[in-house]
Write a protein that binds this DNA or RNA. Structure first.
Lengths: 345, 345
DNA sequence: GCCACGTACGACAACGTTGTCGCAGGGGCG
DNA sequence: CGCCCCTGCGACAACGTTGTCGTACGTGGC
């Protein structure tokens, strides 16, 4: 039977000091390994702390300390249950742990009001810095927080204001590369399906697509570019519409993983999965187990997270060098669906 | 150009008080909406706080406050990038937000030493409570923390000590149900593939499998029960071994999603995916897009998370009623792979 | 006109910790 | 033997906030 006390009572330095027969300050010195205490005293204090189960109160410590560190980082993403966001959080956490820093995680659901609220919450807890996946729309709140001196790194989407670090991936270049590969396989009619246009990455990937078309000398067809798709359903409808065209595309580039899934679903339903080539931006679990396995542009999420954490932690350490805009290369993972030739006509 | 100050300087109540020409205590009253301040004074203080960009310091507040709340919850899972863990975190966060509570997230990697360390870190920040997915092995550290009065809820795996809430799913019952369904489809040789036996859920699901066999009047075959599989590779080898048996099983029950994936991979490689029935425990993304779509036992992760958060938050509010062991029902999602008949012999 | 009472505020201490300073004692050096 | 410095420790204040209590003042009843 676990004996659970009615109220949680944490021993303080005062208690440890009393038991060890020394002053509070001496306890502080021992706990923080500051030296200036005799070996016997250190021993006594350690024993007293141990026997009382003393644990330093980090809130009080950070309040009094001159550097004001809370050893806590805020991570503000769109949706913690999204695999990308989760992997990012994990990578930040792992890097932060090295510095004994913990992570306050929250979802802003791509809503700037909620984002502001969460940002306030984090600031109220005096986090040492924040890693933010900016919600689409005005970044005034982020800029405001930043202008107060809060170390901040934007991930996935860059800041629209200056003096702030960011970590993004090669959205445009990799999209172009995907399109060029489709063109190299002989496709002359390549469709584009993109997500919400308010999101920076959607725009970048669309531009990359257009650049790829241009570079391959292919003409741009209005009816083959579907933007601002929200959710799997919209993607499915769009793909169905494309395939029903009298001159249907022979290849599809999807700019987001949910859209890729929607496209694949429609192709499977029609039995055209080996007839229409498909490359998607962003990897997803089991993409390699479908038939055909899906060729994707894969972001290096762990590296993105680690880089972001590195940046914010070094800013916290006082690094005042100019803002860094790190770009982590994405990789084209060829699995089959992007290596289909167009039907011989 | 964003003007970023060299050092972060947050205004305090003292500053607000000076600007508004009132005492610090009055500022405190206004900020906390405690009343006892004249309308004009409230107005002046609000204006002063606004113009200075004042934000209350929650650390200082929680230090001084009588209830000692930090409005922060710890969530300690195995791996934040695992979809199950991420969904759980998300659900807890969403529920916590209602109470203006933030979530400190950390991964213990199923390592009790790391778990202890993270638990210490959380305790040092004086979180109001913790939601823990217990690492396998001795739960001494958890029990110790619990015995100090920290509100705690275990998720996914129950406590081995008393007086502590938990939220789990119907591991045994749902496993049995899966096996019974396979039997109902005429399968008389059903194999089992399970994960690490140190993990409670693995054991429960194995027991459920055995119960199902017994209930269906099927005999247990030693060579068809593979336990303690670590990772996808091990699962693949085990499945390959099973299928090579002279009397190979006609149906497989996999007790964990990675194992399900491994099994499916082998079946696909051999082209037997329509010949051997498969039911997996735990849903995974795209399970419905494979051919055949995978029948799974799906846990209601959001509900598990919400329930856990509800419990820990009510304990924090002072609920001292006996420990609750909530069991959230899992659901058999029939998609095809579990509804295959054995080859007519 | 007196007292009782309620309201609006401020002074002060305290939460648990750390930075500053000061003091006692010992040892080295001239 | 006197001086200084170094080491080991403690007293005290302060971080930003809130709980307690006191005080001034206005209001109402007799």
């Amino acid at each position: 039977m676990t004996q659970v006390p009615a109220r949680r009572i944490e021993p303080t330095m005062r208690d440890v000091a009393a038991l060890a027969g020394v002053s509070i300050k001496t306890v502080s010195r021992v706990i923080n390994d500051q030296g200036g205490a005799g070996a016997d005293v250190v021993e006594r204090v350690r024993a007293a702390a141990q026997s009382l189960g003393y644990r330093p109160n980090l809130s009080a410590s950070s309040l009094r300390r001159s550097d004001r560190r809370s050893a806590t980082l805020g991570v503000l993403v769109e949706d913690l249950s999204n695999p990308f966001d989760a992997a990012l959080l994990r990578a930040v956490e792992e890097r932060a742990r090295r510095d004994r820093v913990l992570v306050l995680a929250s979802s802003a659901e791509d809503d700037i009001d909620l984002q502001r609220e969460q940002l306030e919450s984090l600031a109220g807890r005096r986090v040492d810095g924040v890693v933010v996946m900016a919600a689409s729309g005005q970044q005034d709140d982020l800029q405001h927080e930043r202008s107060r001196g809060t170390p901040m790194v934007l991930v996935d989407r860059p800041p629209t204001f200056s003096d702030t670090d960011s970590v993004t991936t090669t959205n445009r270049e990799s999209s172009r590369q995907a399109v060029l590969q489709l063109a190299a396989y002989g496709h002359r009619h390549i469709a584009f399906l993109g997500g919400r246009e308010t999101v920076w990455t959607s725009q970048e990937r669309r531009i990359g697509y257009l650049e790829g078309l241009a570079q391959a000398g292919l003409r741009w067809r209005d009816e083959s570019v579907c933007t601002d798709l929200k959710g799997v359903d919209a993607a499915e409808r769009a793909v169905a519409g494309l395939l029903d065209l009298t001159s249907a595309p022979t290849a599809i580039f999807t700019a987001q993983n949910l859209i890729t899934v929607g496209a694949m679903r429609v192709l499977l339903a029609r039995g055209w999965q080996h007839r229409v080539a498909l490359i998607g931006f962003d990897d997803f679990p089991l993409a390699d187990m479908l038939d055909p396995a899906i060729t994707v542009v894969r972001q290096d999420v762990p590296l993105i997270g680690r880089t972001a954490a590195d940046l914010v932690l070094s800013r916290i350490e006082g690094d005042r060098s100019p803002a860094v805009h790190a770009v982590v290369p994405a990789e084209l993972v060829r699995r089959g669906s992007g290596e289909l030739w167009p039907p011989s006509s």
